[in-house]
Amino acid sequence: MAKELLKGNYAVVKGAILAGCRNYFGYPITPASEIAEAAAYYMPLVGGTFIQAESEVAAINMLYGAVSGGIRSMTASSSPGISLKQEGISYAAGAELPIVVVDIVRGGPGLGNIAPEQSDYNQIVKGGGHGNYKNIVLAPNSAQEMCDLTMLAFDLAFKYRNPAFILSDGFIGQMMEPVEFPEPRTDFPREDWALYGDAESKKNLISSIYLDPDELEEHNRKLQRKYQEIEENEVRYEEYHLDDAKFVLMGYGIVSRMLRSAVDTLRKEGLKVGMLRPLTLFPFPKKQIKELADRGAAFFVSEMSNGQMVDDVRLATELKVPVYFYGRMGGNVPTTEALIEQIKIYYQKS
């Protein structure tokens, strides 16, 4: 198939439509606005709906309504907008609605700036809204993956009836790379839980309310079983030169691209470094980390944040080995050169 050179943000929309998404609800915010703009352009061309909502709160609730109808639908925003959506995301998790949300993370807290950060890890991977729930979280690191993982997000969301996130940043959204698009998906089964506005489906109730404590606890236990199943089946990651690595670099999204370059350079200098890149942040590749830690490998985590994923890495290593961290914030991106310098310092120590 032919390739198209395009921005990650556009790849998201084309991927979504190819995956069968037919509704987009969103409120403009840099650096995610291009997703809304592309959706505004393409959705009507494929028989879909685009609504510029009055707020992120409205957008996520339109999404809640649309997905109640069993049709693949999405919203996208950037960090402050995601904060606003959190209530709706919690409702979707409770009602087991397969919403798909894209977060093109920018600098925070507060209004922060519009430059790329990875500081939404906690608010997306750890919940962010209220209640005992988890999102499926996918972290692309290229324009191609912006397409592929968006498509996967829809599949996983519907497979598990669970909110799924694309956690990306302004850097990947803006980056142009060649993207190869698959064939569009067209026939989707009727979802037996959804409302189609007909006699057959009207028995269905979309709700997250369970007044009785025992019932709510049972509902929560069911959710936890689902999350466990997701952890067993859906962990995805990339390994790079891990076979003999005694020092494992970890980062997701754009940082993993710099780490990959760092591995190439450091390998040439004879350092036994490798990279483990999570593609899924929930479920997190805990088992793989533990195996590497059991082998005695030390870890070096880099994020464009104050260190959020690194907590999960530490937990997964069961604190058996050193886990070093190097972060940049405010929209500053760790360059390969800076990473190499840091890695060398810690490599010597371990």
Binding site: R22, N23, F25, T49, I51, A53, V57, A58, A59, N61, M62, L63, Y64, G65, A66, V67, S68, G69, I71, S73, L195, Y196, G197
Partner: peptide, 14 residues
């Protein structure tokens, strides 16, 4: 907003 979402998804529904 929820009503908007479902109505736009299935316009024949009331």
């Amino acid at each position: 907003a929820v009503a908007t979402g479902i109505k736009r998804t299935h316009p024949h529904s009331i």
